[in-house]
């Protein structure tokens, strides 16, 4: 498949957001699991994944989105010792929540999106902590972590928007070349 065909394929299937999402999920998984070796292990850490799920749920369709979010969950499971189904289950739950809000709220501002990130962070942590037998960690650590995830959400949204814009430019360039 040459570059022209690739551009055409991406244009047809509108997979740009999915590509951006899965790429950044993978990068954040790698970074989050390696930087702790140097920075020391602490409970609080910068977690980009809830913000990425929120951004993706605001930018893609339900069916394809579910498929890619399950893929992200499976990918995350490989980096953890938690039970295999916990990551896909918690991520898909978060995706559905954001998708539901997006479908029912008329004017969703960026600040609302950041708030939703905090909300789905709690949701993800509830599923994962309860599933791994440590529900007592939700208070206060889980809620502080959710606040931190909300604080990094603007950066994640900006990075994803820029990535999507750049990818769209590349795709349209290939499309015109064809």
């Amino acid at each position: 498949m040459n570059s022209g065909h690739l551009g055409c394929y991406l244009e047809k299937t509108c997979m740009k957001a999915a590509l951006v999402f899965i790429t950044w999920i993978y990068i954040s998984l790698i970074v989050e699991t390696t930087w702790c070796v140097f920075c020391g292990s602490t409970l609080l850490h910068i977690d980009l994944i809830p913000a990425l799920i929120c951004w993706y749920a605001l930018n893609d369709r339900l069916l394809r989105g579910t498929f890619w979010v399950i893929g992200a969950g499976v990918l995350a499971s490989l980096f953890s010792s938690l039970k295999f189904f916990l990551f896909p289950f918690s991520y898909v739950t978060a995706f559905f929540t954001v998708y539901f809000i997006r479908s029912n709220v008329l004017e969703l501002t960026r600040f609302h999106a950041y708030l939703i990130t905090a909300f789905i962070s709690v949701e993800i942590l509830v599923v994962q902590l309860a599933g791994s037998g440590n529900p007592e960690l939700l208070w206060p650590w889980g809620l502080i972590q959710a606040g931190l995830n909300m604080a990094v959400a603007p950066i994640v949204f900006w990075i994803c928007d820029r990535s999507l814009f750049i990818l769209s430019e590349i795709v349209s360039k290939f499309h015109h070349e064809k």
Partner: peptide, 11 residues
């Protein structure tokens, strides 16, 4: 070479 993505797990 790495830690667990779930930060409450000491793995």
């Amino acid at each position: 070479i790495g830690t667990d993505i779930a930060s409450w797990r000491a793995v």
